[in-house]
Design a protein around this nucleic acid. Sequence first.
DNA 1: CGTGAATTTGAGAGCCATCAATCTAAGTGG
DNA 2: CCACTTAGATTGATGGCTCTCAAATTCACG
Lengths: 256, 256
Amino acid sequence: MICPHQTMLTKNVLQNRSHVLSALERSILEGAIAETRTYAAGEVAVHQGMVVNISLLLVAGFMTRHIDAPDGRRHLVGIHLPGDFVDLHAYALKKLDHDVGALTDVTVAVIPHTALERIQAVHDHLTRQLWFLTLLDAAIHRQWIYRLSGLNALERVAHLLCEMNARLLAIGLSDGNSFSLPMTQVDIGEVCSITNVHVNRVVRQLREMGLCTIKAAQVEIHDLKGLAAAGQFDPHYLYLNEQIAQRVTGRIPETL
Amino acid sequence: MICPHQTMLTKNVLQNRSHVLSALERSILEGAIAETRTYAAGEVAVHQGMVVNISLLLVAGFMTRHIDAPDGRRHLVGIHLPGDFVDLHAYALKKLDHDVGALTDVTVAVIPHTALERIQAVHDHLTRQLWFLTLLDAAIHRQWIYRLSGLNALERVAHLLCEMNARLLAIGLSDGNSFSLPMTQVDIGEVCSITNVHVNRVVRQLREMGLCTIKAAQVEIHDLKGLAAAGQFDPHYLYLNEQIAQRVTGRIPETL
DNA sequence: CGTGAATTTGAGAGCCATCAATCTAAGTGG
DNA sequence: CCACTTAGATTGATGGCTCTCAAATTCACG
């Protein structure tokens, strides 16, 4: 039942969150995978408005959710990391209100909605965890609204970096202070709604403040507590387990 | 089984949406209602961070979801109208990342999570529709991100007014061109992330452009097509049925 | 008719956008 | 192996949208 090759595909789902999947549930989920696919950086995997009957689980790489404006500018409404169930919401929505694209080269696992229906019919708890995952995305959306609504350019970038650090730490892709972030300054601007020119000035400011440096898609946080304060970052909306939540605000020494 | 007094409580749920509830499903939902409550305008019904085991279905009045900033300013991340399942997401989240408050005096129906568990165990389709409702909120969140990210002050307010018109029309609280909107200019500013002073200037501009007038919490749209264009409003994210969707962009004469 | 909330109007300032140019790094092809 | 190409990063100058501060006015309501 459990294909060895697939065993690792779901390892990051709900990793280090206050909600967890049992080994059995994880294997059920893996059993629902029909195939894996790859997309090259820049490709659009799911187009807005198209009816779909599959959902994608991101295995490797970064993906975006974005809305294109009439003037051609792109606005990111979400970023997805390995372990994220990128468009699980398509299970109930059937057609999406936005595009899903590959930020880097990515590998995704394809899960047909028919398989999700079978899960839903039998596994109530697992279904509720899947539902939770879609609501976690919504919670992140709300924080992004707050980021745009309540923070200035410097604060927005600081907040984004803290969120990325937290989510990447949860899946083992950050050591708590440094991580690889495959986003250009244009990308960061499309998340924070500031021009790439101003992103550049803000990044320099963060560096001059001794908070962090970004060099060649590598983020080094020098003052985690200071960066979290600058971005007014409180990770409660990520529903992380307590230990991780404490670490990403610098409230606990990383050496603990 | 179906209490006559409760029969009307769910009438607006998924009203005029492309997803619908059968009469049976509606009665099942009504059977899950434990009680009704009222809150006065300004009261906070659900506090951020508190563990809850009930969800609220808004029957009458307007509610908000909001995040309070450290500086005391409030930022709305959602508005709810009669028929909205205000905090259904609490069923899977258990504690919310934001507050839920009463914008006006409101009446809500209380549905215990134990009742939702029973529904989930038996009624797959209804459960999927409930799941859909939470995803509809997320879709609206994304559009709010876009509103803040891609639109200027005038466009944001125009977009908000179009959304309110559309959602109110769907539940019979707008005739397509005029509706009651119990929001102050401060409230509108908290949604659109502009100061109440600037909201005022924008409202005047919209009036002078012949698009709409707002007087005593009553919105009169004079040029629906123009207002939708000004706000770059496309209602696809509301998942309305086709007829309603066409009407709220002025693409079909209201007299049809 | 008084009182506080909500709306309205004005003046000045600031954050960030826009426009433009330069620089760096990495990949490509001859 | 180097000229060429291109995406991304960087820096400067200017302007505009919106904020802030302040005051006046209207409105709702007891």
